[in-house]
């Protein structure tokens, strides 16, 4: 299973903390393949959501602790974290 976790504003906007998916069953081989699954889940949680692929593109993608791109391959057992950039002080 692949573990997907959401953080930052992206989590607040989608109202999703995280989920698991079976890469072979869902036909997922790259991060980008997760996009439709994530958008579908977001729609289930909030049918009025306006979240789209562009918003996922706005996240920092981290696979197993290493920053990656949406074209990166993912394997069973991977942990993917999607995070909005932040600032503070």
């Amino acid at each position: 299973m692949i573990n997907v976790e959401l953080f930052g504003l992206f989590r607040l906007d989608t109202k999703i903390k995280g989920f698991e998916l079976d890469p072979s069953a869902e036909g997922v081989s790259t991060v980008k393949d997760i996009y439709p699954i994530l958008l579908k889940k977001a729609k289930e949680v909030n049918p009025a959501t306006k979240i789209c692929a562009k918003d996922i593109d706005g996240c920092i993608i981290i696979i197993n602790g290493v920053q990656s791109k949406k074209s990166a391959h993912v394997n069973d057992g991977d942990k993917i974290q999607l995070m909005s950039p932040v600032c503070g002080g």
Binding site: F7, L9, M83, S84, V86, C87, G88
Partner: peptide, 22 residues
């Protein structure tokens, strides 16, 4: 602005914890 107009109001500086963890 995404930081000053979105992240800071909605998450505050507290929004940094997850990013720092990562």
């Amino acid at each position: 602005h995404p930081l000053t107009g979105n992240q800071l109001p909605r998450l505050g500086t507290a929004g940094l914890v997850s990013s720092m963890q990562m």
